[in-house]
């Protein structure tokens, strides 16, 4: 019980910090279920006349289902593509071959180019590919992430070299070695790539803003921004919409916090 006595100054700082971190969540949740005029002053600290009416209004006044399905489709495309493409590249990098250094150099230098620095030509390329205003056009730049390639490579490298060798000697084709031996044993890397790809694609805004024109291919962040610009002064329905857009991300975060953190700090641990 010695420790609990010594702990109180730490809690004295961390509890207010936690409250500060949580207040924005509370505030938007409170606003979204406030039944009366949200512009009343002073604002009520507790939701007055709590109501789900705003959610109903948000659902009907905007094509929420369309945005949501589009977001899910983009995320799904990106996740499947990342597992296949990044695992394949990561597996290739566990071999020794001529030109490997060059390939590594290409990956590492691509890592130094933020996507934001490529938007203009990327837009022109997407136009040339005929992918403007399509879900594939939104998802394509997310199809491979270098950090995930390296996470897959590290996880394959950690498996005993004798596993693929044994399979190879038994005559198992190379691509089956990857799919049936290596990939099932790289489950943590798969989980990490699913979580990170989800968060990155789900939250992506700038790129859809550039390549999407129509409502029926918009994703949730685009829909949110559009809603904001239609109704210059905000309505409670906007905040209901915000909550609905945040929930899937929060769920994924709570379900897979460990994988998420491991993926993000993969670089930090190497250093």
């Amino acid at each position: 019980m010695r420790s609990r006595n010594a702990d109180w100054p730490v809690h004295l700082i961390l509890i207010p910090v936690s409250i500060l971190m949580l207040v924005p969540f509370y505030w938007v949740l409170k606003t979204s279920i406030t039944g009366e005029n949200i512009f009343a002053y002073p604002p009520s600290i507790l939701p007055s006349d709590p109501h789900l009416f705003n959610y109903v209004e948000a659902w009907y006044s905007i094509p929420f289902a369309t945005y949501f399905i589009n977001s899910i489709l983009v995320v799904f495309l990106a996740i499947v593509a990342n597992i296949l493409i990044d695992a394949a590249a990561g597996y290739a990098l566990t071999f020794h071959f001529r030109g490997k250094r060059l390939i590594m150099l290409i990956y590492l230098s691509c890592m130094m180019i933020p996507f934001q620095a490529t938007i203009i030509p990327a837009y022109l390329i997407t136009v040339n590919l005929g992918l403007v205003n399509t879900l594939l056009g939104i998802a394509l730049p997310h199809f491979s992430h270098i950090i995930l390639i390296f996470i897959f490579k590290a996880s394959f490298d950690a498996l005993p070299r004798s596993l693929p060798e044994a399979a190879r000697m038994d005559g198992v084709p190379e691509w089956r070695i990857l799919l049936q031996v290596m990939l099932p044993l790289a489950r943590p890397a798969i989980a990490t790539s699913v979580v990170l790809t989800f968060i990155w694609s789900w939250n992506d805004f700038l790129w859809p803003l550039i390549v999407v024109r129509d409502d029926d291919v918009s994703t949730l962040p685009l829909g949110l921004a559009r809603f904001l610009s239609y109704f210059e002064d905000t309505t409670a329905a906007l905040y209901a919409f915000v909550v609905m857009a945040l929930v899937p991300g929060i769920l994924v975060f709570f379900l897979a916090q460990r994988q998420f953190i491991e993926g993000l700090t993969a670089g930090a641990r190497k250093g």
């Binding site: 924005p24 939250n203 805004f205 905000t234 915000v242 857009a245 945040l246 998420f260």
Partner: peptide, 12 residues
């Protein structure tokens, strides 16, 4: 707060 949709965070 880190993994949240930035657009939503901005509106909040």
């Amino acid at each position: 707060s880190y993994p949240l949709m930035v657009v939503a965070v901005g509106i909040i």
